[in-house]
């Protein structure tokens, strides 16, 4: 019993710390978690951790939170998943609540306003850079379906404001149909 309680505490403290001190989102947090839970605590084996991360990445939601959930679940079941999720969500929840509170005041200040505005230029550049990297990966694969899906949905979203949920669902259906046809063709040969 005492042993189990200690596990819960370690799980909570570890995920809380990783979430509180890691800047830069999921892609930075995931390797850190692997190092902590796999190399240091030895709760999970190396090859298994890769499977867990794959699940976390293919589920919707924030990758960092998903990875915590699945590691918590692997170690201590559903209650472990809950503990890990709370520990991961708590730091941003607290920090952003404070920031949001002060934002209303700071927004009145012209100097701060100008500062935020100028930093937005950097943010826009970061997003454009990320999109460029991801899009060129798709183009390099030379899969016509993917390239078409990407270009058509960009036009539909940006110019025609199509419902995003409908678009994502139809993308999923297209992908499934495509893979099924591909498999049938392979079997036919």
């Amino acid at each position: 019993m005492k042993e189990k309680l200690r596990l819960y505490c370690t799980l909570f403290i570890t995920t809380f710390k990783i979430s509180a001190f890691t800047f830069g989102g999921g892609f930075v947090i995931v390797p850190l978690m692997k190092k902590k839970f796999c190399d240091e605590l030895k709760w999970i084996k190396e090859d298994e951790v890769l499977d867990l991360i794959a699940i976390a990445q293919s589920s919707p939601g924030a990758i960092a939170v998903n990875t915590s959930i699945i590691i918590g679940h692997r170690v201590l079941g559903v209650s472990g998943a809950l503990v890990a999720a709370i520990a991961t969500v708590l730091p941003p929840l607290v920090i952003l609540s404070v920031v949001s509170f002060f934002y209303t005041f700071f927004k009145e200040n012209r100097a701060i306003n100008a500062l935020l505005k100028d930093m937005q230029a950097g943010v826009a550049a970061v997003i454009v850079d990320v999109v460029f990297d991801m899009a060129s990966k798709i183009v390099k694969k030379k899969e016509l379906v993917s390239i078409l899906l990407m270009s058509i949905s960009f036009i539909l979203v940006f110019f025609f404001k199509i419902n995003l949920y409908l678009l994502i669902l139809s993308g999923a259906v297209t992908g499934i149909v495509y893979k099924l046809i591909q498999k049938k063709r392979k079997n036919a040969i």
Partner: peptide
């Protein structure tokens, strides 16, 4: 195959969505 298909179909769309948000910003 269902999971493969879902990811394969959604990935390019997600990139387009992020691109659209990036352009608005």
């Amino acid at each position: 195959i269902v999971m493969d298909g879902i990811l394969m179909g959604i990935r390019p769309i997600v990139i387009a969505l992020i691109g659209s948000a990036g352009l608005s910003i």
